[in-house]
Design a protein around this nucleic acid. Structure first.
Lengths: 107, 107
DNA sequence: TTAATTCATAGCCAATGGGATATCAATTCC
DNA sequence: GGAATTGATATCCCATTGGCTATGAATTAA
């Protein structure tokens, strides 16, 4: 059983899938049809990707009649932030060049 | 031409590769041999993964005699933090919009 | 100079996974 | 009821990729 980081990184590694998640973050709840219209791939592919995102806890689906409304679940990103800051923490404690990172983030 | 997020997510998606990066973050500079000793895969595989990490800018290699010392490059994680906080930002701004709407309806 | 060490590269193979089309189930409209 | 819409599932195909072994190149030791 893969841990949370494993699932998140693998799930977000695919560009099509990440684009779907980004749209849901930017524009909020959307139906499968609306997502398919701009996804550049077929509807079954979109459904499959949404299934993977759902398994990872990154989205949730709300059934309404014959359509399903998907929305992003921001909380699922927490382990990603944890991991990144943990790596940064290890690094910072070893050396003292965190300034480089902060400069980049400041842009 | 994949963007920074693309490269980072894809690179960190593989567990073996991520474990190598984590070790370099935790324990600092290490030779290929030292990394191979605990990686659970063969030396050529470790070298290949280090090559991918290097391409992504996540590590750098320092040649010293016949051995190569690799170390993590924390700065490369910046786009990852950017992306995550950006997604969180979109979410918050939509939340703010909802709040605004509710306020207006309240009047 | 020869042998041994260290790492990178080259090929090869099997598994994974993202894409497509075809189809099914459920719902809504006529 | 029958047709149309919406999304999920089934199956297949092919490119990618992570693993291996074998080997090469460079450095150090004998």
């Amino acid at each position: 059983m893969p841990d949370a980081h494993e699932v998140l990184f693998r799930t977000l590694a695919d560009p099509t899938r990440r684009a779907l998640f980004e749209r849901l973050c930017r524009e909020g709840e959307k139906t499968v049809g609306a997502l398919t219209a701009h996804a550049g791939v077929s509807q079954p592919v979109v459904s499959k990707h949404l299934g993977v995102l759902k398994q990872a806890g990154l989205v949730r689906g709300r059934h309404e009649g014959r359509q399903t409304h998907y929305s992003a679940q921001l909380g699922a990103l927490a382990p990603l932030l944890d991991w990144t800051s943990q790596m940064a923490g290890f690094w910072e404690s070893r050396f003292d060049q965190l300034e480089d990172l902060l400069k980049r983030m400041d842009q």
